[in-house]
């Protein structure tokens, strides 16, 4: 069993180029990983005999809402710039330790590597993250909407600047 700090040290030794910081403002520490390295980092975490992270508890995407806010006349707004992030909670069922990883991507180009080849659980979670926030997971086997209708074209509902359409297939929405 290892603490988050120890796991951070191990990762830092393994990937000195890009693992340097922990997100400390939250009261839950999160190790920051670049979007295009997450797959190899996770593979390392899952296979290293000292770590053995064999299960992904939760994958959550969130809109940081930190861009420039462009308000419009009708009270709605849009974000310009800023970031979206994806947070991974991993656990080892054998060694019983946990770790939190964090990936931050720009709003304009939210591309993150998929980890569904390591944990099958990630398949649906990533589809949900795509559906709700619009994160694009590269190398995902089947990235399409999961909760909203397949032909939904009004955007990603959990983004803070989401606007609901007036009609969907002839049914009044709001």
């Amino acid at each position: 069993m290892k603490t988050q700090q120890e796991i951070f040290e191990i990762l830092k030794a393994q990937y000195p180029d890009f693992i340097t910081t922990q997100d400390t403002e939250a009261n839950e520490l999160a190790i920051e990983v670049p979007a295009l390295q997450i797959n190899s980092v996770c593979q390392f975490l899952a296979s290293n005999p000292d770590l053995l992270f064999d299960s992904l508890i939760l994958l959550s995407a969130l809109d940081d809402a930190n861009g420039k806010k462009n308000s419009e006349a009708d009270g709605s707004f849009e974000f310009d710039g800023g970031t979206l992030s994806v947070i991974y909670h991993l656990e080892s069922s054998k060694l019983r330790h946990k770790v939190v990883l964090k990936v931050v991507v720009p709003r304009e180009k939210p591309e993150v590597e998929s980890v569904s080849s390591i944990w099958q659980h990630a398949d649906w979670e990533e589809r949900e993250a795509y559906d709700m926030i619009g994160i694009i997971f590269l190398n995902h086997p089947n990235l399409q909407r999961i909760l909203m209708p397949y032909d939904w074209d009004a955007g990603f509902p959990l983004r803070k600047d989401y606007k609901n359409p007036e009609f969907y297939m002839g049914i009044k929405v709001p």
């Binding site: 939250a26 839950e28 999160a30 508890i57 939760l58 909670h89």
Partner: peptide
Amino acid sequence: GQIYTRVENPKGELGYF
């Protein structure tokens, strides 16, 4: 801040992030 806690729901691990 952020927090993840979980409980044993009748169906399985119910967590709130």
